[in-house]
Design a protein around this nucleic acid. Structure first.
Lengths: 364, 364
DNA sequence: CTCGTCACTGAATCGAGGA
DNA sequence: ATCCTCGATTCAGTGACGA
């Protein structure tokens, strides 16, 4: 069993290589497999210039069943390689994405989202025979339905001006200075993905120090973005030309310097738990004090053991809050209010905040 | 062999019925099959109200293979029914669309486009565990690779301000007066589609007088739109409740009088919002870079998630800008400055302008 | 009449952790 | 494995109602 070649771009067949590495050792896989475009003939623009499409040998398969076998094999190898809580992303177009999606469901991957990359500047449809193909589809899935996968919800929300990040991402195609070109000025790879796309993928579904694998590395976009964001990376490709480009690109990419700049936004779920009873123990609340619900509809009395008691219910702040409202559940911290000396009502959550900030040194 | 029941909503199993009709007799099929959502348990909003999902028996299948058999059967019957130059549309979500797409390719359908319905007002993700599921996917395909299918390119272009119609369609979900409700005020069907979607489908891929079949008619949206646009229609459903609703709806739908009179007003998308985070994603700013306030009184560091952090505050550019000044609010775009290579300071708003001008031409 | 407030809703695969 | 508790979590829009 080979060791993981961390922080390298390695040459070889991704199926063989992934099989040779330790199982359940990787946190995130991002894959941009051949699309099996089945192009026939050439396409010209209205001004008669020729459109340079994907003509490379790696995109040719004999038929659907050959493509399906290939898809099954690399997805199965990736499934084995992933940690139980790891996730996988695949990007594709209508040529291949339906076969890929069906296959990964069959293997046992559990789809979390399909995410649409909406291109601001797609290639037009020159013949006027179809809609402009202005998007690509990504599938994000966990290893199993019960995985406790990473999703940096708060980071994604922050990236989107404090609104939940949606499943449609509007972004330009990779061009200009970001597009890598050879000495002859020709593009180094026909399907180089924009770094912005990978930035969002890596930020959303991994943490600093996680291992990110790209089985079809191409120009090394996944590796470069992972390095910049402080993740470990492995890129795989079979083509020597691409390997050279990707390695040089990664070499030029700066390390993530500053842990503060790349860490995911703080999540409330990860803050230390404060039992309600400790507010009583520490004297922020006294036994016998009265809590009020919003609009003063209900009241409850604090007991010395950290339970509260209303006219008809007794139990934790959450249980009683749910019971008096007849709701299935309740966050007692935000539901119950306390009258301050000034006469204002504040949720008891401010007491919890006080305890937390006292107990912990100020962190950035 | 039964005759086609033109301009009617018929009761029965769509597979049996389509098999009983003459082959190669239909121009267009639009299908909104069960999505096989596999919901388990209940979901509540943060305010404890219950989300009413799709609980109907018609959406339940034992497993993937039962769903695949069902899919294969109705798609095969539709393939037989279509004229050689006819086309088919299917709509679905990530739960089913990959299996549907793979199956229709296997049957011999030729995919022309996948079209994304981007919802302006999707249901949020209440638990914060995934991206907001803000779109559905449609597949448009011809009966074979060599079909001379109908595509009203110029109508679509006209609908889109004289720009080619793209594969992403932004449209609200069906609500308000369009949403059909029963006597009790409950929605008549859990998944009624907006007429705007069908308008575009029917306009794009059929001509007046063509026969349009919807095997899963539901509330009859396809039939109503087809009638209004001067197409012949057939709707099929098994549920008596839906049949009654659809028949009444079609009855109330006016015939197309003057075909030229039907010209819907295209709605321009408003200027896209640029989240500060996208400057980081697109590489116009790097995590760790320092922003300065006017007069250099305060500084803040850019983080990879699009928040910024000063000595005492963390949050959006607006929040931190307000906090350091002790102001109630602040426009971070004009407040925070960046040092350019030349040593001059410019507000970060110039980066937003740059992104807008680069990235946002020509979207629908 | 307008305006503000409040309640309600939509194809949803929507915990984590300890006992 | 199962049960139980804690407690985190929502956006755009429609429509009813009252001032």
């Amino acid at each position: 069993m080979a060791k993981l070649p961390l922080d390298r771009i390695v040459e070889g067949d991704c199926i063989d290589l992934m099989r040779s590495w330790p199982e359940e050792s990787v946190d995130l896989v991002f894959a941009d497999p051949p699309y099996n475009l089945q192009l026939s003939g050439e396409l010209h623009r209205p001004n008669n210039t020729r459109v340079s499409g994907v003509e490379e040998a790696w995109d040719r398969f004999d038929d659907f069943s050959a493509y399906d076998r290939f898809t099954f094999d690399w997805l199965t190898a990736a499934h084995r390689l992933l940690k139980p809580d790891g996730t996988l992303w695949v990007i594709g177009s209508y040529h291949n994405i339906f076969r890929v999606g069906k296959t990964l469901q069959d293997i046992g991957f559990w789809i979390l989202n399909d995410v649409i990359w909406v291109k601001t500047n797609p290639m037009p449809n020159f013949r006027g025979k179809r809609f402009t193909n202005a998007h690509e589809t990504m599938i994000w899935c966990s290893k199993s339905p019960t995985s406790k996968y990473t999703f940096n919800y708060d980071s994604m929300k922050a990236l989107n001006d404090d609104l939940q990040m949606r499943s449609d991402w509007t972004m330009p195609i990779c061009s200009g200075g970001e597009r890598i070109k050879g000495a002859d000025g020709a593009k180094a790879h026909p399907t180089q993905k924009p770094e912005g796309l990978l930035h969002r993928v890596v930020m959303a579904s991994s943490n600093p120090g996680d291992v990110v694998v790209d089985p079809f590395a191409g120009t090394g976009t996944t590796a470069a973005v992972s390095k910049r964001l402080g993740r470990r990376f492995i890129g795989i490709d079979r083509e020597k030309d691409y390997l050279a480009v990707a390695r040089e690109r990664v070499r030029q990419t700066p390390e993530a310097g500053d842990a503060e700049a790349i860490s995911p936004a703080p999540s409330k779920r990860k803050e230390p738990r404060v039992p309600f009873g400790s507010l009583v123990e520490r004297g922020l609340l006294s036994p016998g004090e009265i809590l009020e619900s919003p609009c003063r509809r209900f009241t409850a009395k604090v007991r010395a053991d950290g339970t509260i008691i209303s006219s008809a219910h007794r139990g934790s702040i959450h249980q009683v809050g749910a019971a008096v409202q007849g709701a299935p559940s309740c966050n007692g911290w935000t539901y119950w209010m306390l009258k301050t000396d000034g006469g204002k009502k504040v949720p008891i959550d401010v007491l919890r905040q006080k305890l937390r900030s006292e107990a912990m040194p100020a962190t950035a």
